[in-house]
Computed example of a mutant assay.
Amino acid sequence: MKYLLKYSAALLLLALLVSGCREEPNYPNEPTIAFDRVDQYTYTKNRITFDSLVVVVDFTDGDGNLGLRRTPTGNSDPDFQPPFDQSSPYFNNFFANLQIKRGSIYVPYPFPVASLNLNGRFPRLSTDDQDETLEGEIRYTLTNFSNDIFDPRDTVRFEIYIYDRALNKSNVVYSDDVVLFQGE
């Protein structure tokens, strides 16, 4: 019994030391994403049926420079200066191109105004500007898909990619099919 207590303390200390030596993963500096899922919420308001879709992608990034602030912190906020100013193609960092299934193929959804899209910004994922490995998930909410615009049972999917603050583009992924107005 005396030896059991003596050696168990040493084994416990060794286990704590080994578990504390976990090596940081080594990811490339370009973001990488993988489609996870689409959460679908269907509701009716004033006799119009709506879908709210939450697109979830998993990500990794080797230097942690993901995200842009959604509102400026001042006139010189770097997240709103070129190349991230409003007239730039890099103003948004999350791109979700809507595709609708026609027969057995997908075609880009024809928005009534060419400048309309589902792109947007996700916030900074690191609190400072130091390089750090990041991994996790981004949950991006798309609202107001309504049955006065889409036909019930339309099947859609999303072509998704992101940019980091160094303007590195991630890989492109596609969501699973989403049959509109079925998520009750």
Rank of each mutant, 00 (worst) to 15 (best):
Asn97Gly: 10
Leu4Phe: 11
Asn26Tyr: 07
Ala9Val: 15
Pro28Glu: 08
Met1Leu: 14
Gly136Gln: 03
Leu167Thr: 05
Glu30Gly: 04
Asp51Leu: 02
Asn46Phe: 11
Ser115Lys: 02
Leu118Asn: 12
Ser52Lys: 00
Glu23Trp: 01
Glu135Arg: 12
Leu11Asn: 10
Asp131Leu: 01
Thr155Glu: 13
Tyr109Trp: 13
Glu137His: 08
Tyr109Cys: 11
Asp51Tyr: 02
Tyr163Ile: 04
Gly20Glu: 06
Phe50Gln: 07
Asp79Ala: 10
Asp129Met: 12
Val54Glu: 13
Leu66Ile: 08
Cys21Glu: 12
Tyr3Thr: 09
Leu14Glu: 09
Tyr3Pro: 00
Gly20Asn: 11
Phe145Asp: 09
Glu23Ala: 09
Phe158Met: 02
Leu98Asn: 08
Phe35Met: 05
Tyr161Trp: 13
Ile138His: 05
Ser19Trp: 11
Gly67Pro: 12
Gly64Cys: 07
Tyr43Gly: 00
Leu142Pro: 04
Ile33Asn: 06
Arg153Asn: 12
Pro110Ile: 03
Val107Ile: 15
Pro152Ile: 00
Glu24Ala: 12
Asn93Thr: 07
Ala34Glu: 15
Arg124Trp: 09
Leu12Glu: 05
Leu180Ile: 00
Leu66Gln: 13
Asp36Thr: 00
Arg157Trp: 04
Arg69Asn: 14
Thr155Tyr: 04
Leu134Trp: 03
Phe122Met: 10
Ser146Pro: 06
Leu125Ile: 08
Glu132Phe: 00
Asp176Lys: 10
Ile138Met: 04
Leu17Ala: 12
Ser19Lys: 12
Ala10Leu: 15
Arg47Glu: 14
Ser87Pro: 05
Thr127Met: 14
Leu12Ala: 14
Phe50Leu: 02
Gly20Ser: 11
Leu13His: 04
Val38Thr: 14
Leu13Lys: 08
Thr141Ser: 05
Val38Gly: 07
Asp79Asn: 14
Ala10Cys: 10
Leu4Arg: 09
Asn93Val: 07
Asn144Thr: 03
Asn92Ala: 13
Leu134Ile: 06
Val156Trp: 04
Asp85Glu: 13
Ser104Lys: 11
Pro123Gly: 10
Asp164Ile: 03
Asn171Trp: 01
Tyr7Arg: 13
Val178Leu: 06
Arg157Thr: 09
Pro78Asp: 11
Leu125Gln: 09
Ser146Lys: 04
Phe50Thr: 07
Leu116Trp: 15
Arg121Tyr: 11
Asn92Tyr: 15
Ile160His: 02
Glu23Asn: 03
Phe84Leu: 05
Thr141Lys: 05
Asp128Gln: 10
Asn117Gln: 09
Thr127Asn: 15
Leu142His: 02
Tyr41Leu: 11
Asp79Trp: 08
